[in-house]
Design a protein around this nucleic acid. Structure first.
Lengths: 200, 200
DNA sequence: CTAGGGTGAACGAACATTCACTCAGGGTGG
DNA sequence: CCACCCTGAGTGAATGTTCGTTCACCCTAG
């Protein structure tokens, strides 16, 4: 049901090549354009090879989703200064996510594609069961938690880092000041502290 | 290439029934689960009927997308007090969008499904060409414009009303105070005025 | 030699699309 | 008023294609 860790012994990791091919094809042409034979061709392996490592196409999709999410979580916490303030840590996290996905926008596109598909429910459940998301951990176990608006965590996720993912998935990129402005807009959205009294 | 307006003379509008069936099936089971025969069955018409009104499945998808977007735009501006402040008008617009989509979450789910699929590019282009979006007009031609952060309009759209759409598409709903809090979080995200000095 | 990853032709199911056909409704000549 | 035909929306079985999946066979590392 799940992907084995990279075997490391074999000269080429065909299972990883298949996952990468699925990622690329789904990102570029959707699930519609990611048939198993197309995936095999893209990966440079035979049609049957994917079935040596995964029981079904669904299984491959879930394994690929988990891999992308885990890579993202790992990349996100890199460069976050644990001693910094909650706001600074959030902005570092945000930029880490955006940097990682911008380097390979297909990852972001794949994530969005899976998350708004019938795979979403199961994929999300498997992700929660399999890994302990560093991004979620940051939001729930540090002093950042106290500054967040009292909204469901999925919504805070969508407001806070969703824009980073969707920006990386898009075709156009932002200049550096705009990127900072966007990250700060996300921070404004998820926090309520320090808002000045405002008149309508 | 495009949907004719409702004929009004015929007793049942089969083209509209086909569009509604596509909406429902794509929302609930994705494009994967929305085969033309399944759509025809759901609509209660013959397999060939869809092809009397639409040249292809793609054509049907685009026509349905346009209909959903137009209905949303129309519903959104209803109940917006043009004399009110920019902030109040935004919140009214936001709640109008959320109310309309919450009444039929399949519309929201269909929108998200199309917008993160290979149909997205063409669908978006057709929407821009066909209609003059009241939501976009509100953001670009009123005093709201001056208060918006200087970010690309697609990003402001994503930050400002994207959460309303994604919330309506989700399975769980928010209580009224949380809904207000979320709408205000969106306002905070897209505007920069009145931010208090903040300490890290 | 053996075990097991790798292979691609083959298979049945499901797909989008077509087409020969039906038939209700409306215009027209008588 | 009737009898007629004409039109085009509606239909669903049939079509060719593509899909996910299988399997009998081939390597090659150990």
């Amino acid at each position: 049901m799940s992907a084995p860790a990279a075997p490391a012994t074999s000269r080429v990791d065909r299972a990883a090549a298949v996952r990468a091919a699925l990622r690329t094809l789904v990102a570029r042409h959707g699930f519609h354009g990611a048939s198993m034979s197309a995936v095999a061709t893209e990966a440079g392996v035979g049609t049957g090879t994917a079935y040596v490592h995964y029981a079904s196409k669904d299984d491959l999709v879930y394994a690929t989703y988990l891999e992308v999410k885990q890579d993202l979580g790992r990349a996100a916490i890199t460069g976050v200064d644990t001693a910094a303030s909650a706001r600074t840590r959030f902005l570092q996290l945000w930029r880490g996510i955006h940097r990682h996905l911008s380097n390979d926008p297909d990852r972001a596109r794949f994530l969005l594609q899976v998350e708004s598909s019938p795979y979403a429910r199961t994929a999300h459940a498997k992700a929660l069961a399999a890994e302990d998301d560093p991004i979620l951990r940051e939001a729930t176990t540090t002093d950042l938690r106290a500054q967040l608006a009292s909204l469901p965590v999925e919504i805070l996720y969508d407001l806070g880092i969703g824009p980073a993912i969707r920006l990386a998935a898009g075709s156009e990129s932002l200049d550096k000041p705009s990127l900072t402005a966007l990250a700060e807009a996300c921070w404004r959205a998820i926090t309520t502290d320090g808002i000045a009294t405002r008149r309508t």
